[in-house]
């Protein structure tokens, strides 16, 4: 039976280690979702991704039941690894902290393609390259 959707929420929380504290509690609580039920299920599903920030896309229905899928790590995390830098630049317009190649951007875009709101790889690459530049990473060919 088709159920009416109440809200779509994305969370980025530590794999296997979500708690009912913020941001999970307020994000779910305001929609009347049973917080502990989500926390238990998420931790069980993401236990193999401990140590990574795991993006979750959650659909909450009008009857307050929910379903969710876990996704690939954030582009910023993948870019940091690709550029071998510890963190992005706090002042991306002035200070560049590293560089990534077009090929690396394409690789990340392809990996994240199912998770990005993009119609094709070129559009996905534009999003990933935008993320790279705003972290102070130069995109080189």
């Amino acid at each position: 039976m088709a159920k009416k959707v109440r809200a779509v929420i994305k969370l980025q929380v530590p794999g296997g280690k979500a708690t009912p504290a913020p941001p999970v509690g307020p994000a779910l609580g305001q929609h009347g979702v049973n917080i502990m039920a989500f926390v238990k299920e998420f931790n069980e599903r993401s236990s193999s991704q401990a140590g990574y920030i795991v993006p979750v896309e959650m659909t909450i229905f009008e009857d307050r039941s929910f379903s969710f899928i876990t996704k690939t790590p954030p582009a910023a995390d993948l870019l940091r690894r690709a550029a071998k830098v510890e963190k992005g630049s706090g002042v991306p317009n002035v200070e560049k902290v590293g560089r990534v190649t077009q090929d690396q951007v394409r690789e990340i875009a392809e990996m994240k393609m199912p998770d990005l709101n993009a119609n094709d790889v070129e559009a996905a690459m534009k999003i990933v390259a935008g993320t790279a530049r705003s972290m102070g990473l130069e995109v080189v060919s």
């Binding site: 929420i9 708690t19 913020p22 941001p23 705003s134």
Partner: peptide
């Protein structure tokens, strides 16, 4: 296009993670 970068900043200064609506 800027969401991932903003999310990274929120991870840096906030606690426990980020929610995106």
């Amino acid at each position: 296009e800027a969401a991932e970068t903003v999310a990274a900043l929120l991870h840096k200064w906030g606690e426990g993670g980020v929610a995106i609506f």
